[in-house]
Amino acid sequence: MSILDQLYEKAKQNPQKVAFPEAANEKMMQAAYETGRDGYIIPVLVGDAAELKRLAAERGYEESIFTIVDIHEEAYKNELIAKYVALPETRLKEKALGRRMEDPLYYSMVMQAVEEADVTFAGIDNTTGDVLLAGQMIIGLKPGISTISSIGLCDIPGFEGSEGSLLAVGDSAVCTNPNAEQLASIAISACDTVASLLDWEPRCAMVCYSTLGSGQGELIDKVTEALKIAQEARPDLAIDGEFQLDAAIVPAVAEKKVKRESKVAGKANVVIWPDLNVGNVSVKLIQQFGHADAYGPMLQGFNKVVCDCSRGAPVSEIKGNVVISAVRAAGDKK
């Protein structure tokens, strides 16, 4: 059974409420319908109710599969606003929030913030920037986390790592040139993401072109500083480095190069790149030469699960990402 099939099964055991602020979009409504009909999620369509009902009927979908939330309905909107502004450390006040909530993306995130939904899934009509801004403004960052980032999950044929053919890598998509503090945040968030999604015990390697001082220079200094920050912030996590990639994931190489105790060296299941140049090139190498399937990017660092899909994504990919985000949300509740 592929990892995606396993995640589909996991989603079905504990379906989460997923808010779709772009449900009028044909591909998005199809993905919401099919994942809802098959029991993986509880789809909540957020927008102009009359339009959404008309579109669902035109497209031949049973309306009973959906919960439809009308953004023009004042009583429920006011209830959400009251609950939201009562939360600690929210950014927007009533009036500004009410204005932003005319946009279904913000409306959905407010629902999520007050636990009327578990996930907000968007990105087919909104840009990544729109989703990230709304997420930062409404959902906010996790305490102690200084940047939004992402990880991807690679299923690499022939790779025999500590999780079989699977390896989580990040950040290959969002944070361009992280400073040490941000790099530490990426590592911490990645550990939390794989724990909630896959029930892994994270073993996170911070990689660069040096293993424990074998190389020197400012590019390495950033990684060692990030490592120190991450270890101090979260001593409960196994985050180690600085390692070259082979020392991180190949036991025989780790044995030669890492001459001290390490829970991570040679058996890392999470690899953190030093910047986006490395991340982007590496993922493409894994895909091109390793013929890997790469799932994601999964956004991380927010207080709750926010998902941004590619604007050109086919329905099958959207469904996969919806299910992944639902499993993460269920895992976060544990």
């Binding site: 950014r91 927007l92 006040k93 009036k95 500004a96 204005r99 932003r100 801004l133 930062q136 403004m137 960052l141 200084s146 940047t147």
Partner: peptide, 12 residues
């Protein structure tokens, strides 16, 4: 993140 906070404060 700080610019997001500033934009929110300006809105408020």
């Amino acid at each position: 993140v700080q610019m997001v906070a500033l934009v929110a404060e300006i809105e408020n």
